[in-house]
Design a protein around this nucleic acid. Structure first.
Lengths: 230, 230
DNA sequence: TGACTATCGATTATCTATCATCGATGGGTT
DNA sequence: AACCCATCGATGATAGATAATCGATAGTCA
């Protein structure tokens, strides 16, 4: 079965439109607050308005955009207040994921995480924020995958939890190397196959991000240049 | 602002269709495995196919139905394996909700929970499963609401976590009174405004459900009559 | 009798046209 | 100059038509 889950491999246009829009949002072509006009997107992608409406609705439920009936759709502006709400959720979900994953972490799995960490370090060295973020997300996603809980993985992917990593990297004032190296303790906990420790460490790892955002919130209001995301 | 969040109060047809379908699914008119034909629903509700497609997509993302491109939509069959995956998620999320809610539980809030518990007890006495379920959901929803985390509440509502309560009541072999009374310890923990205790108790409350489902799974495969949901 | 293939009906996906809504703007009045 | 209201353009929402897809069925052949 192909990646779209369809036996025949046929895809609906909604998926193409969604990819197009996600690329634009995550790539910076569409910025927070930007209005998304259905008919314009339809023209750009080469489809009719229907699949565009469906794609936008998906993205709305995933938290990437916001809309009101008859008033159009905008790219969601993620505020520090949003992040402060999302981190307890991430901490809880990824804590459970780490707990259940700890029982399935063989040598290859640990090496995969170490590889992600090494990629983060290299990216920090090169000041390559984009690669750093992708490796960070890949690190966390792998742990959720190893938990064996498909519903948890779907929920993790279908919310904008992973996009919060993007904003954290942008908003926090830590160096990329700092952000990379703090993943080491997760690897240690998972290597020990200690479920309880894995959960505790993962929750602390994420809850600390919320503390940083909360502490920096005063700074942010005094300085707007940090809002730019690579 | 009205409940649809729209300033002018205008609603799109998608919401009407969604309510229609949810009523049919939760009310038993549409059973797990039943096929949902877009054009037929459109005719029944009195709208065109477009809003029906949008409503079905929402319900798919919420986990109530499943579909494949070009192959139609069916009501999702919730298996014990599904539940065993959902409970760790519920436990984690509602644990966090209880933790954060514990700081905001004034006297009126405690009384509201006690009222829900009393409704459950009355429903148990009357063998009224539907009212019992509704009060149970209301109980948990209120705690999530009191956490003050809007995103958590939205996530709790936008997944089918609440529908897992429906299935648990049906699948577990406990009496309705047993199911009602086990909420008492949550109220106790919240009354103490003890965040850590509240989280621990809530997680145990939900994780125990998973244990019951896992233990009963052998029984379920031997007896199909229990699959009927009131 | 079983396997294979063509056909058809049901249904989904998409397109186009049109209606409804909202916000911006300009003119008129005070 | 400020305020109010009518109008209009842009855009969202929906209806109806049509194209594409899939599964069931029937016919044919070995």
């Amino acid at each position: 079965m192909d990646e779209s889950g369809n036996r025949s491999g046929r895809r609906v246009f909604r998926e193409d439109v969604k990819e197009f829009l996600l690329d634009a949002i995550l790539g910076g072509d569409l910025k927070p607050g930007d209005r998304i006009v259905e008919t314009r997107v339809a023209q750009q992608v080469g489809v009719s308005q229907g699949p565009v409406r469906e794609a936008l609705r998906d993205l709305e439920l995933f938290g990437f955009v916001v809309s009101e009936p008859f008033r159009g759709t905008r790219v969601r502006e993620i505020t520090p207040a949003d992040l402060i709400e999302v981190y307890p959720i991430r901490a809880a979900l990824e804590g459970v994921a780490a707990r259940d994953a700890a029982r399935h972490m063989d040598h290859d799995a640990i090496r995969h995480l170490e590889s992600c960490l090494e990629t983060m370090r290299q990216a920090a060295h090169n000041n390559d924020r984009k690669t750093h973020i992708e490796a960070d997300i890949q690190f966390h996603r792998f742990i959720v995958l190893k938990s064996g809980n498909r519903m948890l993985l779907q929920m993790w992917e279908n919310t904008r939890l992973s996009s919060s990593t993007i904003v954290t990297v942008a908003l926090s004032h830590r160096t990329l190397l700092e952000l990379a190296d703090r993943h080491m303790e997760i690897i240690d906990a998972l290597t020990r196959q200690d479920s309880e420790l894995a959960e505790t460490v993962m929750r602390s790892h994420i809850e600390e991000l919320a503390t940083w955002i909360a502490d920096d919130q005063v700074d942010i209001s005094l300085s707007t240049t940090d809002k730019e995301i690579a």
